[in-house]
């Protein structure tokens, strides 16, 4: 206990009292002035030490956070660039259409405009409007935001998140139920659009989407709901909502629109020459 007692009762360094006694005995004033060079130098040193320590020990933004911010910045730049390019493509496509029409009108050839329009419709290049369903899928409220993604059955996957596989099954179910055109979050599903996952992101037609996923399907709303409900996809969706808490909401509407796909581009595939004239109905086929 004597340690604690001395610590509390005599906190001052005993050296001060001894030095004072020595100076008294020598006939000097017991205290030295506080303005000596030594004291000022010490004060400078201590202040410097405080400042340096405060600076050095303050938690710094980690390297990971810096890299993250940089990556976010790059992603945003690239995204805005992509949006600009897309707008340009749309404008140029419109221009090309105009020239096509002009050329057709001038050449006096049989009117191909309706045929071109029909092909564009089939390829999913044309924005469409009509009655249909919107199906909004969202992660479960309990789902973390930093979970690892993957396909549904794999381990270590937050089961409350909407996976690319879920979207695939639901979209296929909608095609099967008679949907004529489908878009997810404004991405038109054409014959070249794939629904995939990369890391945590669901990717539709090479564009990463974020929740909530709004699937817009044009078609007869009542018939689609009737066929979709008992189908495999309908049962699957039901299970998702019941077991994993994934939120799904259907809404029928008389007037919906799906955008056209501006990035449709076929470079290597060549049509097989055939005598059979293409006489399909103007609906987009199964595209996922």
């Amino acid at each position: 206990m004597s340690l604690i007692t001395s610590m509390i009762r005599r906190p001052l360094d005993p050296g001060y009292a001894e030095a004072a006694k020595r100076r008294r005995r020598a006939g000097l004033p017991q205290a030295t002035p506080t303005r000596t060079v030594l004291v000022v130098v010490m004060a400078l040193l201590i202040g410097f030490m405080f400042a340096v320590s405060a600076k050095a020990l303050r938690p710094k933004p980690s390297v990971a956070a810096q890299a993250r911010a940089e990556l976010i910045e790059r992603i945003e730049t690239l995204q805005s660039g992509a949006a600009q390019s897309e707008a340009q493509i749309r404008a140029l496509t419109k221009e090309v259409r105009g020239y096509e029409e002009m050329a057709l009108a001038q050449s006096g050839a049989p009117d191909l405009t309706t045929q071109i329009e029909q092909y564009a419709l089939q390829a999913g290049l044309t924005p469409l409007a009509g009655p249909g369903l919107t199906l909004t899928l969202d992660d479960a409220t309990s789902a973390g935001t930093d979970a690892q993604a993957g396909t549904r059955p794999s381990g270590g996957f937050d089961s409350g998140r909407v996976a690319a596989g879920d979207l695939q099954i639901v979209v296929n179910g909608l095609w099967g139920a008679g949907a004529e055109a489908i878009s997810i979050n404004g991405q038109r599903l054409t014959s070249t659009a794939a629904i995939r996952f990369a890391g945590q992101a669901v990717i539709v037609d090479f564009r990463p989407l974020s929740r909530p996923y709004v699937i817009t399907a044009l078609g007869d709303p009542e018939q689609m709901q009737r066929v979709f409900g008992p189908s495999f996809a309908g049962v699957y969706l039901d299970q998702l909502t019941r077991q994993y808490g994934i939120r799904a909401a259907f809404a029928a509407s008389k007037a919906l629109t799906v955008p056209g796909d501006s990035s449709m581009h076929v470079e290597f595939a060549k049509p097989i020459p055939s005598d059979v004239p293409s006489a399909r109905p103007p609906t987009t086929g199964s595209g996922s």
Binding site: P11, Q30, A31, T34, M42
Partner: peptide, 26 residues
């Protein structure tokens, strides 16, 4: 360092400050 500084301030107020003791204690 804080301990040394507050000890020195107290010694000044007690009237027994000594610069050498301060430096050495610090």
């Amino acid at each position: 360092a804080l301990d040394a500084v507050f000890g020195a301030v107290r010694a000044v107020l007690d009237g027994i400050f000594n610069d050498k003791v301060f430096v050495v204690s610090f």
